[in-house]
């Protein structure tokens, strides 16, 4: 009885998180492995970027440790975690970098590979990508 009630509650919660972005965002943070998981993911993504001939030239003069810190904060906050992003606005930090549409996609691929390697399930991958895609116009061709 109690178990049936519990699973019903779980079902309802599941259905709710399906429609309510807030509920989904907080569990995205957990699904990404919280702070540690996100830091590992961003580290791996940066290593993939460094391997990618198409975009690594953008990062030659970048302080990668600082970028890693900023990205981790930002993704943590976006995913509903207990972080506050302390970096610059996206438009500010990407203006003048001459980032093309292809460059943006290359970064998405670097992230996808990193998520694969960290065994992040497809659904969780998609939820993170759906949070990043709307930033496209704040980053590309500025």
């Amino acid at each position: 009885m109690k178990i049936a009630g519990l699973s019903l509650a779980a079902l309802l919660l599941g259905a709710l998180s399906f429609t309510a972005p807030a509920a989904q965002a907080s569990s995205l943070y957990q699904d990404l492995g919280e702070q540690r998981g996100i830091e590992l993911l961003m580290e791996e993504m940066l290593f993939n970027i460094a391997d990618d001939r198409r975009i690594r030239h953008h990062f030659v003069e970048t302080d990668m440790a600082h970028l890693h810190q900023m990205l981790s904060e930002q993704i943590c906050e976006l995913a509903g975690g207990p972080c506050v992003y302390s970096g610059e606005e996206m438009v500010e930090s990407h203006t003048g970098l001459d980032i093309s549409r292809g460059d943006f996609n290359a970064l998405v691929e670097a992230l996808q590979l990193a998520m694969d390697d960290n065994d992040i399930p497809v659904g969780v991958q998609n939820r993170l990508l759906a949070l990043l895609a709307p930033m496209h116009h704040e980053i590309v061709n500025l």
């Binding site: 940066l46 290593f47 460094a50 391997d51 001939r53 690594r56 030239h57 030659v60 970048t62 990668m64």
Partner: peptide
Amino acid sequence: LSAALLLG
């Protein structure tokens, strides 16, 4: 990582 970037 930065060294790899420069080289690459």
